[in-house]
Design a protein around this nucleic acid. Structure first.
Lengths: 190, 190
DNA sequence: CTTTAACTGTCTATCGATAGATAGATAACG
DNA sequence: CGTTATCTATCTATCGATAGACAGTTAAAG
């Protein structure tokens, strides 16, 4: 065997992630994916029985990896502004990398076509991100109530996803930069 | 003949619009569309030779209708806050109507799969909206420079699109409401 | 140590469904 | 009659998914 199961699993996940971030869940095809990693489409079904399984695994991994990175940030610095700068940089780098989008953001747009198991994972991504932003905000605004913090965090998350979406649609990363700058100057983002 | 060309044109546009707002451009199919309006898929090609033609017509109409409504708003009241309230209400009503999205927002997510003629129209939608918000902001902040106003307007547009996207992904319109409220309380939206 | 058995990963071939698109016939309107 | 709108029928391409075969690997049995 050329590759172990784990290796192929990873290769498939990586290729699938790139495709979804660039063209969405609907554009993800077993045939194209197979060609990219050098096997046949039937073999992809060996690793991921259904497309829903692949999509859910993809979103779950994406959320986990993100959560890991965010936890590191939170442990590195106590400064809310510094954390948020790093956070907005994550979404910026997706755009800088072939005009890609947040995997869960693009899946949210395709919501109605997602299998239930994928929807669940997409929801968890939003939850995880809002939870992290809430903890960052708690440092900057210790006086605020938990509910206020969560609403603010959700607003920040949505605003950043929107900045990415619009900048992508205009194929102009400067739009993302300008928008984030405006978020900061109004005080939406610390 | 049961209907005139214009009637059928309108019926097709309306059905297509609903589908795209609910499931995106990729989910738009001539067969389904034909079934919905009671003709055969080949007949749809008579009205719109290619899918790109239909998509572009759809986005153009969407932008035009929106621009017309926005112009009325601007003529009705000089109050920026009132105008922006009406504006956010537009995006809210899409969500309230079967969890739909802004047609151009959802198309931005599918950007890579769009024919060039559709991309052009999607760009114009953003341009039109940002232009309108800029004029509204000019009333509230007459001292600001044109460039500052435009950046602020783009940020508002992106933030609202993002609020819609995230609320849709979570299937919870309350998230939209809370997010808009947060935008207002931080001063991002007048 | 060898033989047998099960497992793993990939293959070929194929299924039914659906996609967008086209050609040519048909029916109705003016 | 000629134009307009829609039809039937069909094409090629692609989709996700499945069945069955086969080679290489591992592990247990004798």
């Amino acid at each position: 065997m050329a590759r172990t199961k784990t290796d192929m699993h990873e290769a498939l996940m990586a290729a699938a992630k790139a495709t979804v971030q660039a063209r969405g869940y609907n554009a993800l095809s077993f045939r194209e994916l197979a060609k990219e990693v050098g096997i046949k489409s039937a073999s992809v079904h060996y690793h991921f029985p259904t497309k829903g399984d692949l999509g859910a695994a993809l979103a779950r991994r994406y959320t986990e990896d993100g959560a890991t990175y965010l936890a590191e940030l939170l442990a590195t610095s106590k400064d809310a502004a510094w954390c948020m700068d790093r956070y907005t940089e994550i979404f910026r780098s997706a755009l800088a990398n072939d005009n890609r989008m947040c995997l869960c953001g693009i899946m949210s747009a395709e919501f109605d076509d997602l299998p239930i198991e994928v929807r669940t994972e997409v929801d968890k991504f939003a939850e995880t991100n809002v939870g992290w932003i809430t903890r960052v905000l708690a440092r900057a605004k210790p006086a605020a109530s938990e509910q206020q913090l969560q609403e603010h965090a959700m607003a920040i998350f949505a605003a950043i996803e929107g900045a990415q979406l619009v900048a992508r649609g205009c194929q102009d990363i400067a739009i993302y930069d300008g928008t984030i700058r405006a978020y900061r100057s109004t005080g939406l983002i610390p």
